[in-house]
């Protein structure tokens, strides 16, 4: 990015950071909701967008994280933010375990398997598996997060926690995208056979994408649990996976700014359409359809990577 772009991004971020000062609680809470979905969609983007693995069961990993956090917090009184690494680990390991035998499946077969995993997890939670998930009631009484002695309670406070995490995620995922790992995933998505031919261990990379994406969703689950203070299986139903799927594809698979923009639209629009009362989802469905038809590549599709030879020569002096 050049200097102007940096400047633009920086000032936007700064403006966004002071937004809660001008907005009412409801508006801030909508932004929080958008932030959580942005986080989840960014994690799904790693699997679906970067590696091209059809995953329509992302809510399962999100649920694993949220439940891990809730159980650790309510049973063992571990402060909720301390559970972040455990949630990530639990969700990531779970993803590795379920993806291991199925990761070689072709696109649509993988899609139904992930849907199946999502449903199995939800049904297991509803049926109070191992007697620790609280069944359909879910888990309640999750404590508020505490950061440096400050209890995070109001939406304005959660705003900074959630969007801080989103900011960190964007930074890390942008780095990841540029890395050898990120490039390998893109290669895999574009042409699996060629990637394998070039010495990329495809199964290894696919699993890594699954594990990492799931782990991140798990951590988002922790934030969700902390914010809601009550979680129940219905918050992780098939519809949630569908929404995340729509965000990633609508934004433009693999495009981080696109995913962010789509999170704003997919979560924000139904709120905007509250004026339509009972017809709000109808309008929403129509808008989704029209947006996809108008921009089939996604709202902000990724452009191919450009390297300017001249710039490089100048830089290295050769």
């Amino acid at each position: 990015m050049n200097r102007a772009a940096w400047l633009g991004t920086g000032s936007c971020a700064a403006l966004f950071a002071v937004a809660p000062l001008f907005l009412n609680t409801y508006q801030v809470d909508v932004l929080n909701s958008i932030g959580l979905y942005a986080l989840l969609a960014l994690s799904l983007n790693l699997i679906l967008g970067e590696a091209g693995l059809f995953n329509m069961g992302h809510a399962a990993f999100y649920a694993m994280g949220a439940y891990t956090a809730a159980i650790l917090n309510t049973r063992y009184q571990i402060p909720i933010l301390w559970t972040l690494p455990f949630s990530g680990l639990a969700a990531g390991l779970f993803a590795l375990a379920v993806a291991r035998p199925v990761v070689h499946l072709r696109g649509d077969y993988l899609l139904i398997v992930t849907i199946g995993v999502g449903e199995i997890v939800r049904i297991a939670l509803v049926n109070d598996v191992f007697g620790i998930t609280g069944g359909a009631n879910g888990i309640f009484g999750i404590s508020r997060p505490r950061l440096f002695g400050w209890v995070i309670r109001r939406p304005e406070e959660f705003f900074y926690l959630i969007w801080g995490f989103v900011g960190l995620t964007i930074f890390l995922f942008l780095r990841l995208k540029q890395s050898r790992f990120g490039r390998a995933l893109n290669y895999l998505r574009e042409d699996e056979v060629a990637a394998e031919g070039s010495g990329i261990n495809t199964d290894h990379y696919k699993l890594a994408a699954f594990g990492l994406g799931a782990a991140w969703a798990g951590m988002a689950g922790t934030l969700f649990a902390a914010k809601m203070t009550i979680i129940s299986p219905e918050s992780f139903n098939f519809w949630e996976s569908v929404v995340l799927f729509m965000i990633v594809i609508l934004g433009g698979a693999g495009s981080i700014p696109g995913v962010l923009l789509a999170a704003f639209l997919v979560v924000g629009l139904p709120e905007l359409f509250r004026e339509f009362a009972g017809a709000r989802m109808l309008v929403f469905g129509l808008v989704m359809m029209v947006m996809m038809v108008i921009r089939p590549q996604g709202l902000l599709p990724t452009r191919g990577r450009h390297f300017s030879l001249a710039a490089r020569v100048k830089e290295t002096g050769r």
Binding site: L48, F54, G107, V242, F245, M246, I249, L250, A253, G278, A279, M281, L282, F284, G285, L286, V287, M288, M289, V290, M291, M292, V293, P296, Q297, G298
Partner: peptide, 27 residues
């Protein structure tokens, strides 16, 4: 309109259509 586009775009369009059709019936 999405026939030449990435496959998943049509999936999202289908999901949008599904929401639309369902809520039309409800109304």
């Amino acid at each position: 309109p999405l026939r030449e586009s990435p496959r998943l775009s049509a999936v999202v369009s289908a999901l949008g259509a599904s929401i639309f059709l369902q809520n039309t019936l409800m109304l």
